[in-house]
């Protein structure tokens, strides 16, 4: 097992004929992901790389191929529309890679996705990978190796840095998930922590956070109450400057400024082993298991 994706994943790529979509579809196919369909309106009937049928709509793709997961590489202006379409077509797990989706769009997307019982990952995220089985998104497959550590992160390349340390030191991963850094996202730390806690193939969890907001503090609360597996954490942005903040609403709603110190304290109070540097992940995970 693993979380969210695995051998059972049958993927439809929305925006398969675009520059990013085609490049990453080839990478996913090389990795072994079951890419069963692509969608580009007006290009229905074509074949991608002579192997993957392209459809005009996600509904067509689901009906013809039994796709159960979608990944979105369309430009920002069309990203919200692509999520609506996937959810309406009955896709259970939707991964939106697109960066730059307006937040106002996401306020309306989220209730729609929930009403249809779907899960969204992203937007503005690197996707996820279950090493040796399936990758959906843009995480480089060659830095991962199968194993029993689950990883969840708000960032992209920082995730690669940490995964690379794990892999080089013989510590494999069950699933690595990049949840994205936008203000409104479909899947948060707590969703991933719950899934890893329930996943028989995961023994320990690595959580990579950042400054800003209160998601990490909420995640720490969840760990204290529900997670029995060892958790190792990191917060990026300890030296980030305090922004030239405008208005008071942000401070009022969070009750504080979401600093790295505050988040690391919340982690420690929840029994999460805190890394000072990315490389520390190796020793802390070894010690935790």
């Amino acid at each position: 097992m693993s979380i969210f994706i695995g051998r059972q994943t049958r993927l439809v790529v929305q925006g398969i004929t675009g520059r990013d979509g085609s490049f990453h579809t080839r990478q996913m196919m090389e990795y072994g992901t079951q890419v069963v369909a692509g969608v580009t309106p007006g290009k229905g009937g074509q074949q991608f790389e002579g192997k993957v049928p392209v459809f005009n709509t996600v509904a067509d793709a689901v009906r013809e191929t039994g796709a159960n997961t979608s990944v979105i590489y369309v430009p920002p202006a069309g990203a919200a529309g692509a999520i609506y379409e996937a959810a309406d077509a009955g896709i259970a797990f939707i991964v939106c890679i697109t960066e730059g989706v307006p937040v106002m769009d996401m306020t309306r997307v989220m209730p729609f996705v929930r009403d249809r019982g779907a899960r969204l990952l992203g937007p503005n995220c690197p996707g996820l990978i279950t090493p040796g089985e399936s990758k959906v998104g843009i995480i480089p497959g060659n830095i991962c190796t199968p194993g029993r550590v689950g990883l969840v992160s708000r960032s992209g390349t920082l995730t690669y840095e940490v995964v690379n340390h794990l892999t080089r030191n013989g510590i494999g991963q069950s699933t690595c998930v990049g949840i994205g850094g936008d203000p409104i996202i479909g899947t948060n730390f707590i969703d991933c922590l719950r899934a890893f806690q329930d996943d028989a193939a995961t023994d320990a969890i690595v959580m990579m956070g950042e400054i800003g907001g209160t998601d990490e503090q909420n995640a720490a609360d969840f760990v204290r109450q529900y997670v029995t597996k060892p958790v190792v954490g990191f917060i990026a942005g300890q030296t980030a400057p305090k922004g030239r903040r405008m208005g008071h609403a942000g401070a009022i709603i969070s009750g504080s400024s979401g600093t790295a110190e505050e988040k690391m304290q919340a982690f420690e109070a929840a029994g999460i082993a805190v890394m000072k540097r990315p490389v520390d992940v190796v020793e802390l995970v070894k010690a935790a298991r």
Partner: peptide, 15 residues
């Protein structure tokens, strides 16, 4: 490249 890695790099410079 990447905001998270950029912040972690600044943190490491300080470290």
């Amino acid at each position: 490249n990447g905001a998270g890695l950029a912040m972690a790099t600044m943190d490491l410079v300080k470290y």
